[in-house]
Design a protein around this nucleic acid. Structure first.
Lengths: 171, 171
DNA sequence: CGCGATTGCATGACTAGTCAACTATTTGTC
DNA sequence: GACAAATAGTTGACTAGTCATGCAATCGCG
């Protein structure tokens, strides 16, 4: 390990396994760049699947459904039209429509045609959706704060900066 | 590529957008840790979808299908049993079985019950599968090497190290 | 040898994401 | 005001990932 001190880490430190090890890949990577890209994707999959598990355990809800509920809560009492939700999720519309169908079935959101523009469907969180969110927020916050135990702010900022730069390369 | 300063970067540098901007999120993040986790996932989604597009355009194949073909090519002439493939993809078996079904339909792999252990199904790349791989490798290599234009080796190593450490926090 | 436990897959039923139509409104223009 | 074009969503058909179940070989052990 390098430059930064982090002496406390040793106590409960899980051993970091390389991407190559996790994939049982005998062959070394062609380049550092390739290894970095794979590391981003493997790490993301891991984070997503852990969070999926926590959400399923805490409220029988999927990560995408939770995301939509949060977006709608943020939008307030007037809710949002379908396409607006889709944009904030960086996702294609058809998937969102069906996701909303499932949320409505479970009673966590309500939908109705907008009066001003009858093409739009306004979606808003229901009372029970809000209650569910309140319960889940604690779980998610705890999940999100885990990195604080192993990284300092400068490191996190550096990580974020590099990821932003990486995305800029793949517009 | 060596660890030199990359002063040329400014010339064609795309502007890096933050995760908050990409998500149209008005509210700031609760913590740097939260922002970092989201950055990992957003970046991964972006990388994956760009690569998906390239692969679809070049050979009408999905990323997972391409991954399986590569794994099988690496395994040589004897191929691999289904569960072994599943392990290397960090994925559940059912998905792999059906993915192999589709690969077989397209003629890119061949499957047959193993003689020694008749529970196993040995999978190997076909001749046409190998030809397809040869074509796709160039596309993928180019994709993988893009970061070299914006990062030096020390940065890439640091990025990889941090991602490995992050995964270690979510076992 | 015999029989229960384990191993290796396959199937069914979901959630979700993608693309390609298709419908219903609303807008813009002459 | 009529009609083409744009906008907002929905539906259908795939690929893929997840869990629960089921089944046929093979193993392990008395």
């Amino acid at each position: 390990m390098s430059a930064q001190a982090r002496s406390r880490r040793k106590s409960a430190a899980p051993v970091a396994r390389s991407v190559a090890e996790e994939l049982k890949q005998s062959r070394p990577f062609r380049s550092l760049a390739q290894e970095a890209l794979l590391a981003v994707m493997v790490t993301s999959d891991r984070l997503a699947s852990r969070l999926d598990r926590e959400l399923a355990a805490a409220g029988d809800i999927t990560r995408q459904q939770y995301n939509v509920l949060r977006i709608l809560r943020g939008a307030g009492a007037e809710g949002l039209p379908t396409l607006e939700i889709a944009e904030r999720m960086i996702e294609r519309t058809p998937g969102v429509t069906r996701l909303l169908d499932r949320l409505e079935l479970k009673g966590w959101i309500e939908r109705q045609r907008s009066a001003e523009d009858r093409r739009q469907v306004r979606c808003k969180v229901s009372r029970s959706g809000l209650a569910l969110l309140a319960k889940l927020d604690a779980v998610v916050d705890e999940f999100d704060d885990l990195p604080d135990s192993a990284f300092d702010d400068a490191e996190l900022r550096e990580l974020i900066r590099m990821l932003d730069a990486l995305r800029a390369l793949y517009p």
